[in-house]
């Protein structure tokens, strides 16, 4: 377990470094950057030169790259050109909001997906199964932004129950207000994912329920509920953990769209605004945070898999 963790961690750091480098090269290699001749046109030459020196635009590519990497190691993400604040502080603010949104969405994905999938697999009613499967397949194919609009149309416009967007009401409000604002974006993000997970769990559960160890458990006199939860579901949780880890990539994309749609002040919107403003340090930090999220998702999936099934740690040599 610890060996697996160490190896995976090393690989994860390597991958994160690779993505960071890729993003840095992409930003730096493209013509028309901040502080080039065109951008500083009309400034007195001395002032332009001072700006270039101040922001390090006069130094060669390799020096800037190494400087940036060393800064990363120190936890210094640079200074936002657009918002004129340290990138680290901006990311820290936004990251909390995004984790609240995506963390809850992932939790809903797992709980709802496993629950519906298991019920659909163990139910004897063909019609119930067909209905649940049909709805899940449909919801799974909705784009998350459209899901969001649908929810807004129903729960904010037709029925005035929930706020359309933002994270807090103008007059402040406490925890309850925050939760009310959280429901719609979270549902828009989580429902398609939960639908996909439920289809997956249902199919895997069906396979598991037909396997010999389940028949053996039944033969020993275990009740149907215990067979489903303690025996069949347990064997399904391993691939589900992997699945959730892999869906982080989609959650990162989804959070950009959903945060822009619902004006949620998180990483996705920060990234979107930074990109529109071509705020290079902020953009780099956002891509890096996204990559770290994907890598950490895979890492957590491996840890969860090893906890579910000790053989996993041995097999992954």
């Amino acid at each position: 377990m610890s060996r697996l963790l160490a190896r995976r961690l090393a690989a994860a750091i390597l991958v994160a470094w690779g993505v960071a480098t890729l993003a840095f090269v992409l930003v730096q290699a493209v013509p028309g950057r901040a502080f080039d001749e065109l951008a500083l046109q009309g400034l007195p030459p001395q002032a332009a030169e001072r700006l270039r020196v101040l922001f390090g635009a006069d130094r060669p590519f390799a020096v800037r790259y190494i400087d940036w990497l060393l800064g990363l190691l120190r936890g210094d993400l640079g200074f936002s050109l657009q918002l004129r604040r340290p990138v680290g502080a901006l990311v820290a603010e936004a990251l909390g909001n995004t984790i609240a949104l995506t963390g809850l969405a992932l939790a809903v994905q797992v709980v709802l997906g496993v629950l519906v999938g298991t019920l659909a697999a163990v139910t004897r009613s063909r019609w119930l199964d067909l209905a649940a499967g049909g709805v899940a397949a449909l919801v799974y194919s909705f784009p998350s932004f459209w899901m969001g609009l649908l929810l807004v149309a129903v729960f904010s416009l037709a029925l005035p129950w929930l706020p359309v967007s933002q994270m807090r009401s103008i007059d402040g409000g406490g925890m309850g207000d925050l939760l009310r604002h959280l429901i719609l974006p979270c549902a828009a993000l989580a429902l398609p994912l939960a639908a996909g997970t439920s289809l997956y769990v249902r199919d895997e559960m069906r396979v598991a329920l037909a396997r010999p160890f389940v028949a053996a458990a039944r033969a020993r006199g275990a009740g149907e509920g215990r067979v489903a939860v303690a025996h069949a579901l347990r064997s399904v949780l391993l691939p589900v953990a992997q699945l959730v880890g892999l869906s982080i990539q989609g959650v990162v994309a989804g959070s950009v769209v959903i945060e822009v749609l619902f004006a949620w002040p998180g990483m996705g919107r920060l990234a979107y605004d930074a990109l529109l403003a071509r705020d290079e340090p902020l953009v780099l930090a956002c891509v890096l945070v996204g990559a770290v999220a994907v890598v950490v998702g895979g890492l957590l999936a491996d840890v969860a898999s090893a906890l579910c099934d000790p053989r996993f740690a041995v097999e992954q040599r």
């Binding site: 993003a23 992409l26 999220a293 994907v294």
Partner: peptide
């Protein structure tokens, strides 16, 4: 395969937004 892993972990949505901003 290691370079493949790097690209697999790249948040493709952000990379697209980055390229859209640049190009």
């Amino acid at each position: 395969m290691r370079s493949t892993d790097v690209l697999l972990a790249t948040p493709r949505f952000l990379v697209y937004l980055l390229c859209a901003a640049l190009f």
